[in-house]
Design a binder for these strands. Sequence first.
DNA 1: TGAAAACTGTGATGCGATTCACAGTTTTTT
DNA 2: AAAAAACTGTGAATCGCATCACAGTTTTCA
Lengths: 237, 237
Amino acid sequence: MEVIAIHCDQCKERYCTQQVSIFNGLTPEENAKIHGLIQRLSFKKGELLILDGQAYDRLMIVHGGRLKAYRDTADGKQQILHLFGPGDFLGERALFAETNSAYTLEALTNVAVCTIPREAFQALLDEHPSISKKILETLSDRLTHLERTLESMGAKTIEKRVSAVLVDFAEKFGKREQGRFEVELPLNREGIANYIGLTRETVTRKMKRLERDGVIRANGNKIIEILDWEALQDSGE
Amino acid sequence: MEVIAIHCDQCKERYCTQQVSIFNGLTPEENAKIHGLIQRLSFKKGELLILDGQAYDRLMIVHGGRLKAYRDTADGKQQILHLFGPGDFLGERALFAETNSAYTLEALTNVAVCTIPREAFQALLDEHPSISKKILETLSDRLTHLERTLESMGAKTIEKRVSAVLVDFAEKFGKREQGRFEVELPLNREGIANYIGLTRETVTRKMKRLERDGVIRANGNKIIEILDWEALQDSGE
DNA sequence: TGAAAACTGTGATGCGATTCACAGTTTTTT
DNA sequence: AAAAAACTGTGAATCGCATCACAGTTTTCA
């Protein structure tokens, strides 16, 4: 059975299922069957995939690109809740109940995603309990991650919040290149501010300070190099 | 098969499994079998059930009482991450990998809990996929709840944070009584402060203000009555 | 029930993040 | 490659939360 792959600038793997750990360990036949259920979509940078409060009933797997999930707050800002990259999935809440989306989902870059309708996915779960264990594992990781974020938001030192989010980005989006560790920031300063509950100016100032202290080095607006990993992890402790 | 129930002041149901939705829909035989796997424990108020960083490999179900999960922060405070009450379960992270606990768990009241070792629970999951679906559902709810907490932490107005946590407590621990809606607060002022990343004094002042504005009424230190639900939900918006 | 312990309320003070405004820089677009 | 748009950096003033200190109150426990 031949399967058509969608066009995708940033995709390393050809198929969604190859990229997502929840589908590991399935036979080629099973894989092919899943592909039959999948709808492939692409979006341009800046497009909104889902609106906060909108009905939504699919599991979505990110094939390539980056997405942000946010809610608009009362004072006109955005509270960013999650960032998603290749291999991440979302919408699992929709799989158990008729709920509306808890956030707006926006493409930070051009993205390619695969979606599976609720019914099909439910059936899949019943046939392959291993998938549901994998999802369980992922959700539990996500929970842990959110707990850590929450912890660093509660910690009073603002320095630490900024450092923590940079470490976070580094782990998820960074890569070692010719001995240097570079991170392409998924958000601009205002986005970072909205992620950790500060203002744009404060983020700017704190990051400048980290740069002056030789902890990071900025390369344009979007890329930072991490010079002193230790200092970044410990700052504020 | 007869099963021994542990003594438990606050328990409404006799057995853990009757109280936890993840075991719904099992036959009496299955229920009895699960009881055979369960270890029953009680703890006194103030006792620590698990230490942050300690090895832990069991699923824990709260039978009666209240627990708080927290981590000590660098500046000597506690960041409270979760509150657990009857029917809640925790430790699901331990079921998938050899991890250490991500927090300290402390009894806020006398508590009774049931625990199931990892191996036994793993086997249970394989035999009863429905359980794993239920857990999936619960985790996804918890994730949503944490997202909301995060959102209200990011929102800059401190008023809103305090209101949000009171609504939170009301939903989880409140009850209507003779037309009045009363909440027995699970935490003292300092605990609330540690939950939402403020100081004790600020929480005091904000709550006093809510009281002056006729939104809530304090009845001693531990109990508040909610007078104006609307105002509480909207304050700051 | 009464004493001790724990918790809460409140004023004064200082620090630091926010706000506002605008210049400077980087990135995108054509 | 030039122009436009988006984003970043920074100073000055303000406002509000944290801190400190202690009195007042509630709760616990003997």
